[in-house]
Amino acid sequence: MNGVKLFLQEAGETYRFGIKFFRELFKPPFEFREFLRQCYILGNKSIFLVAITGFIMGVVLTLQTRPTMVEFGAEAYMPSMIGIAIVREIGPMITALICAGKIGSSIGAELGSMKVTEQIDAMEVSGTNPFKYLVVTRILAITLVLPLLVVIADSVSLFGSYLMENLKGQVSFTLFFTKVFEVLEFSDIIPSFVKSFFFGFAIGLIGCYKGYTSKKGTAGVGRAANSAVVIASLLLFIIDFIAVMISDIFYEL
């Protein structure tokens, strides 16, 4: 019973934190420089990791599915199947999970350590709204940057898949990507792109909330980083589930 109460309390606090984000988002002054700096830090510094993961994801997915497709004589459908799987689901989800681990934990730890070392108080005393400077900029940056990272991950992943198809089945670059784009429609791309914004928002919100409200000294910083990753990852699956249910309604229309 206590656990349920704690869960509801935490959910309520996170909701209030999210509402505060939207209130502060549209209120001047705008911390544009810090927002750009965060876009650079959170986005640029994640590109390599996201690209490597995307590449391996494409290669592995192709290698794992190819034998079965060959068995059924359906290897010609490989590019289409891989394309849809990566763009609709695997690309956004894996990129978001990678970012929840890398960015969510780093935001949680950074804000948590700023909290326990009184840097957030120092900022407030300096006449700065720390919520706006630290939280709004980070949540907004990751919300806008994650969809771009997903596009990069999808592209690299498809390229990895093409390399495997080329090695195993002598499929040309043009043929592979013609087949991929033949089956991809806006109804595949748009929902996946839209849910990436929600993924980014969830990662930023949870990371900032956990860090900004962390307590109990340095141990609290570790807990903040850890729970930011765990809760954000769980939330990503919930958002994905809801997004798939909603887009499924549109497919049926």
């Binding site: 950074e110 350590s113 700023m114 009184e118 108080d121 120092a122």
Partner: peptide, 11 residues
Amino acid sequence: FLFQGSALYDS
């Protein structure tokens, strides 16, 4: 305000 742990911005 001079904070106990100096509270310099790490970044």
